[in-house]
Design a protein around this nucleic acid. Structure first.
Length: 301
RNA sequence: CGCGGGAUGGAGAAGUCAGGUAUCUCGUCAGGCUCAUAACCUGAAGACCGUAGGUUCAAAUCCUACUCCCGCAA
């Protein structure tokens, strides 16, 4: 069986590696172009999965827009196309290139959290479980018929980064299962319940701004959910200037009443007030500085 | 040349504009106080102020060049 892999994000690495080792071996990797990175735009960094492909002698295509390679892909006659965290909408001409099926591994329990920030959303909303769903790729994003899903519980102090890695490691087994189902029944799949659909839009750094008029429990989840990307921050007034202050997990809910956004030092902990109490910070990073313990930051206040 | 902030004992900062004895909040060590303490009191150690030049009687501070770190933006 001929399989083509379309992926960019790190979450796809374990699955890609699994296919290389245990088969069916991908005959091609399609990934996003190398992106400029760094302060001066001078360095170009390839997706890590690209290096993985090259090390294993798998051809790599990096079109600006995936539609550009639709014809070439069709000429390869792949049976199955597997998509995971690619970062572009898969156009019709690409979908048609798969002789048997084109499927997508998505890091949520669909139909919940269609979209890019599915992992963050699950934690931010306080869900107790999430998983990997495998569905068919159709015109609408993450909306195709579901072939299979694997569930895992979400830890009470887990960050999105940690959950991301666990979900990534769930990929290989999830894909094996889906391929088995498809082999038995090429038309397998259950439509998603449209009434339960929710969306998790792509995040920007600005989305990490903390709103201290919310309850402490919600803010604590938010900080875990947005770590390490896009991160969370607030603004503090130091030396006559407003400076951005990044906040890192873990944070603890403190039963100490101060006003929203108000800073306080109590029993050696740096606190910020929320609507119903405060959160105790462990690590922060003021604009222009490296990350530091919250107590160190408190020393200069 | 995308925009901006920064480098001062182990940590975080003030001092730089108006050059003149190294300051603060912590930490560390020693001692004291206390039933007790992430509390309080006393004392101590620890810094060639990022690097290299320059100006000056005198430079953390002014001038020039350089290195490194970080925030935004992509």
């Amino acid at each position: 069986m001929k399989l083509a892999f379309i992926a960019t994000g790190d979450i796809a690495q374990p699955t890609f590696r699994h296919l290389i080792t245990h088969g069916p071996r991908p005959c091609l990797l399609i990934t996003q172009p190398d992106k400029p990175v760094g302060r001066s735009h001078s360095e170009f960094l390839p997706p890590e999965i690209k290096s993985l492909a090259i090390e294993n002698g798998i051809p790599v295509w990096q079109p600006e827009r995936i539609i550009e390679i639709a014809d070439a892909l069709t000429d390869l006659h792949p049976d199955i196309i597997v998509v995971m965290a690619y970062g572009q909408i898969i156009g019709k001409d690409v979908r048609k290139a798969a002789k048997k099926a084109i499927i997508n591994l998505h890091a949520s329990l669909l139909p919940k959290y269609r979209g890019a920030s599915c992992i963050q959303s699950a934690i931010a909303n306080g869900d107790t479980e999430t998983g990997i769903t495998i569905m068919r790729v159709i015109r609408e994003l993450d909306a195709g018929d579901i072939i299979s899903a694997k569930r895992i519980p979400i830890g009470k102090t887990e960050t999105a980064g940690e959950l991301h890695d666990r979900l990534a490691n769930l990929g290989p087994a999830a894909l094996d299962e889906a391929l088995k189902i498809l082999a038995a029944n090429p038309k397998a799949g259950t439509p998603q319940n449209e009434a339960e659909v929710t969306y998790a839009p792509k995040l920007l750094r600005e989305n990490g701004r903390l709103d201290f008029t919310k309850p402490a429990a919600e803010i604590e989840r938010f900080i875990r959910a947005y770590h390490p990307w896009p991160g969370t921050f607030t603004e503090v007034f130091v030396k006559g200037k407003t400076k951005r202050l990044k906040i890192f997990p873990p944070v603890e809910i403190a039963h100490y009443l101060i006003g929203p956004s108000e800073l306080a030092v109590h029993e050696g902990q740096l606190l910020i007030g929320c609507s119903d109490g405060a959160i105790a910070l462990s690590q922060v990073q003021p604009e222009g500085s490296k990350p530091m313990p919250a107590t160190a930051f408190a020393n200069s206040l």
